[in-house]
């Protein structure tokens, strides 16, 4: 029952997020076209832009995320253990096999993305493949497959796109202000742009943190537990988590936007542990010990 509830909740939250995205992109685009005096044409442009963004966000976000993370499709000849393990676990989970990707990075980490189990991808770093044995790798992959099965990936990937949108728009507004805003005839326009740009720049990280919090820490515990149900072996995942926790390396291509996707926080620790996107590794290992 737990699984179906979380699937439905993820689907519901994803729809909500798409509407937020639509409204936000529309508002900002319209404000921008308003100060540049495009009139009705600007309104239509803003509508088209927000529609296109939401549409692209839903259908192409996984590809964007994979590209951002510099993930390359995994060759079965080069990584036979990895590809075989995903295939086997997908059978155990009763979902189609997700696309397997590899990221050239020494930091051990992994994430899953996509919009549903039919359109899903798993990416792991070469560092992870290097230090994990078969059971540990299976534990990590089963965790990612649980995110896919739970539809966590749909919501989490949409969050990445939305946070990215806010960052891009803030950046854009500030650029317009400094470089294009020289036109003195647009009275008051510069002021509005400044406020908008500043608001977006301040808003972006706060918003990102808030949504990360919405990706509740319970999600990670749930995925850990479902992982064990697939592999029937709590020790694999817990020793994998211990190894990941020990590593001090950071994933180079991870950003604030994509951080919440990873199995373990890929960025340097922030001072506010309250805003942490992931529960402490020790807590997760302790929870796994209870299962065993």
């Amino acid at each position: 029952m737990e699984l179906y509830e979380s699937v439905n909740r993820n689907k519901r939250n994803s729809i909500l997020l798409i509407f937020v995205m639509l409204a936000l992109v529309f508002a900002v685009a319209w404000a921008l076209t308003y100060v540049t005096r495009l009139g009705t044409f600007g309104l239509i442009l803003a509508l088209l832009l927000s529609g296109a963004y939401a549409w692209g966000g839903y259908f192409y976000s996984d590809k964007i995320v994979l590209k951002m993370s510099n993930a390359k499709p995994a060759d079965k000849k080069q990584y036979p253990h990895y590809v075989n393990a995903i295939e086997g676990l997908a059978i155990a989970a009763g979902i189609p096999m997700p696309a397997a990707y590899v990221i050239e990075d020494d930091a051990p980490n992994a994430f899953a993305t996509g919009r549903d189990p039919l359109h899903a991808s798993v990416a792991v770093t070469t560092g992870l493949l290097k230090i994990m044995d078969r059971y540990e790798l299976e534990g990590v992959l089963a965790h990612e497959l649980s995110h896919i099965k739970n539809y966590d990936i749909r919501f989490a990937t949409l969050v990445v796109v939305l946070v990215g949108a806010i960052a891009i728009m803030g950046d854009f507004a500030m650029r317009m202000l400094f470089y294009g805003g020289g036109r003195r005839d647009s009275k008051g326009g510069g002021g509005l742009l400044l406020i908008l740009g500043l608001a977006l720049i301040i808003l972006a990280p706060i918003f990102a943190q808030l949504v990360h919090l919405a990706i509740s820490r319970k999600r990670e515990f749930l995925a850990d537990a479902s992982s064990v149900q697939l592999t029937r072996d709590p020790s694999g995942l817990s020793s994998a988590l211990a190894k990941i926790g020990k590593s001090t390396l950071r994933v180079k291509n991870a950003t604030d936007a994509t951080a919440s996707l990873y199995i373990s926080n890929p960025l340097p620790n922030k001072f506010l542990s309250l805003f942490s996107t992931h529960p402490k590794i020790e807590e997760r290992i302790a929870a796994l010990k209870k299962i065993g």
Binding site: P80, H81, N84, E87, G88, L89, I91, A92, R232
Partner: peptide, 21 residues
């Protein structure tokens, strides 16, 4: 050897999914 080992672990997983179902 790798292929057969991989297939055998897939058989085990498929059996697990089948028996659960």
């Amino acid at each position: 050897q790798e292929e057969i080992a991989g297939t055998e672990s897939k058989i085990a997983y498929a059996r697990q999914f089948y028996n659960d179902s």
